[in-house]
Simulated assay, not measured.
Amino acid sequence: MKDTRSEALSAARAVVAIVVIAFFVELVIMQSMLFFGHAHQESLLFTILDAAILSLVIAPPIYWLVLSPIKQEYEKRLKAEHHAEEMGRIAITDPLTAIMNRRGITVGLLDAMAQAERYRTPLTVAMVDIDHFKEINDTYGHDTGDRVLKSVAAILSDALRMPDKVGRYGGEEFLIMLPHTNLAQGSKIVERIRASVSKKIFDQGAKKARVTVSVGVTQFKPGEDLEQLMSHADKALYDAKKGGRNLVVARKSR
């Protein structure tokens, strides 16, 4: 849409330019005919200068009458589009971690599921939960809890590839989406993420705190819906928590 309006603005400018040039040429021709028909009249040089001056006089009014309203409307619509895009981005972004929120990652996952279903490509999802997060808040305060959430989100984002996506699914839970990735490959990716998080040291003054995550991984099975897929991921996460935390558990869809 932007390109179309830009082309319309360029076309309007071209029309105005053509009108001005045509007016200028017409004046030159008419005055030249008078000059060559009547030698006693002013020189051709002054005739051309007269035409040029007249063109300069009529060009600004044409610009303000034709181009200025079009330009103002174009800038107004461009600003409105930018505002709409920004509001759309905010609507799917978690304000604390700056990654996608639950709505954003869910929409992305539904699209990935449709693509995997259509093209028969693998899709793996992982549910990541910060271990003992309530204790972190209770012991160090909510500000520290917020810093932990942001740090974990940054580690997850940095570890993912270009087509992968991550979002804050709720509280201390994150959902990772790995298109074109089977369960074995996805398990290796999230295992590296788990290890990276466990190595992170949070400096709390005199105390040094470490954070771990538990991860449940599953692969999308063609024909299942979002609720079924997330149920498999949740069950795998539950097994990781039950198995001692700081663990990755993969669960196949039945």
Rank of each mutant, 00 (worst) to 15 (best):
A8L: 07
A8S: 05
L9F: 03
S10A: 15
A11G: 02
A12Q: 11
R13M: 12
R13C: 06
V15A: 12
V16N: 04
A17Y: 00
A17Q: 01
I21N: 00
I21P: 00
F23H: 05
F23A: 00
F23L: 13
F23D: 00
F24H: 04
F24R: 00
V25R: 02
E26Q: 12
L27Q: 13
L27K: 11
Q31T: 07
Q31I: 10
Q31L: 14
M33C: 13
L34R: 11
F36N: 02
G37Q: 14
H38G: 02
H40Y: 14
H40L: 10
H40G: 07
H40N: 05
H40M: 15
Q41D: 08
S43H: 10
L45H: 14
L45E: 13
I48V: 07
L49E: 06
D50F: 14
D50I: 10
A51W: 06
A51E: 13
A52H: 09
A52Q: 13
I53L: 15
L54M: 13
S55A: 15
L56E: 08
V57D: 13
A59E: 02
A59F: 14
A59P: 00
P60A: 04
P61Q: 03
P61C: 06
P61R: 00
I62L: 15
I62E: 02
Y63W: 07
Y63N: 03
W64I: 11
L67F: 13
P69Y: 03
P69A: 04
I70H: 02
K71F: 03
K71A: 14
Q72A: 09
Q72H: 10
E73F: 01
E73P: 01
Y74D: 07
E75L: 07
E75N: 15
R77E: 10
R77L: 12
L78T: 12
L78Q: 08
K79D: 07
A80C: 02
A84E: 06
E85K: 08
E85A: 11
E85C: 08
M87K: 10
M87F: 12
G88M: 02
G88P: 03
G88T: 06
I90V: 11
A91T: 04
T93P: 05
T93Q: 11
T93L: 03
D94H: 08
L96W: 05
T97D: 15
A98T: 13
A98N: 09
A98W: 02
I99L: 06
M100S: 14
M100E: 07
M100C: 04
N101M: 05
R103E: 15
G104P: 02
I105M: 03
I105D: 08
T106P: 02
T106L: 10
T106E: 11
G108I: 01
G108L: 10
G108F: 11
L110C: 08
D111I: 14
M113E: 04
M113K: 12
A114V: 01
A114I: 00
A114E: 11
Q115N: 06
Q115W: 02
A116C: 11
E117Q: 13
R118C: 09
R118W: 01
R120M: 11
R120P: 08
P122S: 07
P122L: 08
P122N: 08
L123W: 11
T124L: 01
V125Q: 08
V125N: 05
A126F: 10
V128N: 11
V128G: 04
D129S: 05
D129R: 04
I130L: 09
I130G: 03
H132E: 13
H132R: 12
H132G: 02
H132M: 09
F133R: 08
F133T: 04
F133Q: 02
K134E: 05
K134F: 08
E135C: 01
